[in-house]
């Protein structure tokens, strides 16, 4: 279980957000919304362990295995889609057959041996989705995963969300899209 109590983060002397307390039970998903600069990405980076200079308490349960996907894709320009997934540091044990099946589901198989520098922004996002699908983590922190996706892939990603949640995983993701869907929302505007 993920729990924060009075979590605050300040950049130099300016608070980005403060007194954020929430409890994250099993089988659930949260959508982080908020205006630019309210600390959506910052919160995800704190939860994933990249930023350590927060105030307040943050606790995980023992068996939480975190998968973080940031705004920057982490893809290497000179590696192909397949290699980028194979060498993804979040997927230490992965086989080529697993990679192939995921690439096929995402319609990436034709591009799988092209160096990433030649791929479009959306295709790069898809490679990140592939890593997300392959991960065995149980806590996913995704920074704007729905950006740059075509409608078909958006629906596909939502299905993957449901699959992961049904398998007992937890997801926190950020989004600019405030339109109603069935995701419970954390509004970062409230913690400024």
């Amino acid at each position: 279980m993920l729990k924060t109590a009075n979590l605050s983060y300040k950049f130099d002397d300016k608070y980005i957000f403060s007194n954020l307390s929430f409890e994250f039970a099993n089988d659930s998903v949260f959508k982080l919304v908020g205006d630019n600069g309210t600390g959506k990405s910052t919160l995800l980076k704190i939860l994933s362990g990249i930023y350590k200079n927060y105030e307040g308490d943050l606790s995980f349960s023992e068996d939480d295995f975190v998968f973080y996907s940031g705004h920057k894709t982490g893809l290497k320009n000179n590696l192909t889609a397949r290699e980028n997934i194979y060498f993804d540091i979040r997927l230490p044990k992965i086989s080529h057959s697993q990679i192939n099946s995921v690439l096929e589901q995402l319609d990436l198989i034709d591009y799988s041996d092209i160096q990433s520098v030649y791929l479009s922004e959306g295709q790069k996002r898809k490679i990140n989705i592939a890593s997300f699908m392959l991960s065995k983590a149980n806590l996913y922190l995704l920074d704007e995963p729905f950006n740059n996706l075509d409608p078909k892939t958006t629906i596909f990603l939502q299905e993957i969300f449901d699959m992961k949640i049904n398998a007992g995983a937890k997801i926190i993701f950020s989004s600019h899209d405030r339109s109603k869907d069935n995701f419970p929302v954390i509004d970062m505007n409230l913690f400024n």
Binding site: I50, G70, G74, K76
Partner: peptide, 17 residues
């Protein structure tokens, strides 16, 4: 520099290794 630009360093930091 490249790791910084493409976000790999963030992933390394998040990996806890």
């Amino acid at each position: 520099s490249e790791d910084y630009e493409d976000g790999s360093i963030e992933l390394l930091l998040a990996s806890g290794q």
